[in-house]
């Protein structure tokens, strides 16, 4: 069963007029957010987006933007304590990706 997180919160934006139909977003998304319809990508499961940024990075025509980052409470606290962006780069701490 697929898990759904919070609704209407992600920063994913898609500009279909720029889509060149390469399908890359439908390949790289780990949560099936995009599908192809009439040779163009469409967003079908927006709330499944986890803002990993794979689609935007692999969109050669720049039709997708997303503020990507780690969806991790410990990473966010780390970022606040260090005054940086949320980071899971907790070198030295054992329990971290």
């Amino acid at each position: 069963m697929k898990q759904l997180y919070l609704e209407n919160v992600v920063s994913l934006e898609y500009f279909p007029e720029k889509c060149n139909g390469c399908r890359m977003c439908t390949i790289v998304c780990p949560h099936g957010v995009f599908e192809m319809l009439d040779k163009r990508a469409v967003i079908v499961n927006r709330d499944f987006c986890m803002e990993c940024g794979a689609c935007a990075l692999n969109c050669a025509s720049g039709a997708i933007t997303v503020k990507s980052g780690v969806g991790c409470a410990a990473g966010i606290i780390n970022g606040i304590l260090r005054g940086t962006e949320p980071t899971c780069d907790c070198s030295g701490s054992p329990g971290c990706c």
């Binding site: 919070l6 949560h31 499944f48 969806g71 409470a73 410990a74 971290c96 990706c97």
Partner: peptide
């Protein structure tokens, strides 16, 4: 903190929560 371990949470969502 299990948000970071899970495979489906977004930064925007975790910040909101």
């Amino acid at each position: 903190n299990f948000t970071g371990t899970s495979t489906f949470t977004s930064l925007s969502g975790v910040l909101k929560e």
